[in-house]
Design a protein around this nucleic acid. Structure first.
Length: 323
DNA sequence: TGCCCATGGTAAT
DNA sequence: TTACCCTGGGCAG
């Protein structure tokens, strides 16, 4: 799934192309019964908290979406991609091999001077291509919700949560979430309070959305390595300074993720190693999905363990984990 | 073509 | 702790 950075990017995409527009809401797949509650209404606000997306309508109700592990949004229409999205997509240049989504390269993006039909997928992997068919394009795959304006369309596939909720319910959801660096100005203090309440291992605490919102399995493993922290240490046994450093690292990583659309966690590399890491999406992390491969710092084989039914990767030497 | 896997989360046991 | 939901990409055969 898209970790927190992706959801903020999606919220931005809605803010640019859908907020202020009257929307036709439908469910091509037929599994979103709430569509009639917001069909024909105007989106007045779009925002993300952690991995949760909220599209607020002029009725006061909001569309609440959580992508889960499989979900994704497809955007299409007469869109002007902003610099952020263009920069991220320019590096991908990958083809999907399905439907009208095609690979994009720097050239094709640079040619987008005037609005043109483009298709952009934001979710498990971002990708973009030039839409060659008519507008709106036919839905691809199992589209739970289609949001259509005069010149833009967003298709939602495979979400864990997709519901229309009241103002009161939105407040309840937000109350239940830990701080998100892009939402909470005093996030560091809130994080510290919440994380120090639990004796659970720090490797679990970071994944707990009630303690800090937006971190997923990739950022969890990478952040612990970056901090050289043992994932199994009790969260509330760590010194405040270590916890604050974790939070600050998350703030920086999230900003980079939102800017680039990628979970870039390996700073401090030589330019050549950085190019190599970026070129291969399977080899761009310190430890994540590198089980058995030598640690980039010390050469010890990266260990794969299961923590709370999720795969946890770490370097036993750098992170001080003894058997 | 069919199986496995994945950046989540919740409900049931 | 396990079962289950959601979808599609990758890969072995």
């Amino acid at each position: 799934m898209p970790e927190g950075h992706s959801v903020h990017r999606i919220a931005g995409q809605f803010a640019r192309h859908f907020v202020g527009s009257k929307c036709r809401i439908s469910s091509p797949q037929g599994r979103f019964g709430d569509a009639t509650q917001i069909d024909g209404r105007t989106i007045v606000r779009s925002y993300a908290v952690g991995k949760h997306l909220f599209l607020e309508f002029d009725t006061g109700d909001s569309l609440h979406v959580h992508l889960g592990i499989f979900g994704a949004w497809d955007f299409a229409g007469a869109m002007q991609l902003d610099d952020t999205v263009s920069a991220a997509v320019g590096r991908m240049g990958q083809t999907s091999g399905r439907g009208t989504v095609v690979g994009a390269h720097e050239d094709s993006l640079a040619s987008i001077g005037a609005p043109r039909r483009t298709r952009l997928r934001m979710g498990e992997h971002d990708m973009v291509g030039v839409e060659t068919g008519t507008f709106p394009p036919d839905p691809i795959g199992q589209v739970r919700v289609r949001i259509l304006t005069a010149d833009a369309v967003a298709d939602l596939r495979g979400p864990t949560v997709c519901e229309v909720v009241s103002v009161v319910r939105v407040a309840e959801i937000l109350d239940d979430l830990g701080p998100d660096p892009l939402v909470d100005r005093k996030g560091e203090e809130r994080f510290l309070v919440r994380v120090k309440r639990t004796a659970t291992p720090i490797g679990r605490a970071l994944m707990n959305q009630k303690i800090v919102a937006g971190i997923g399995n990739v950022y969890r493993a990478e952040m612990l390595f970056r901090a050289r922290l043992n994932p199994f240490l009790a969260a509330n046994a760590l010194p405040d300074e270590s916890l604050r450093a974790l939070w600050r690292d998350w703030v920086g990583l999230l900003k980079i993720g939102v800017k680039t659309g990628q979970m870039l966690t390996m700073d401090g590399l030589t330019p050549a190693r950085k190019r190599a890491a970026l070129a291969n999406r399977d080899d761009r992390h310190w430890v994540y999905r590198r089980a058995g491969q030598p640690c980039r710092m010390c050469g010890t084989p990266i260990v794969l363990d299961i923590m709370e039914a999720r795969k946890l990767y770490f370097c036993p030497t750098c992170q001080g984990v003894t058997a």
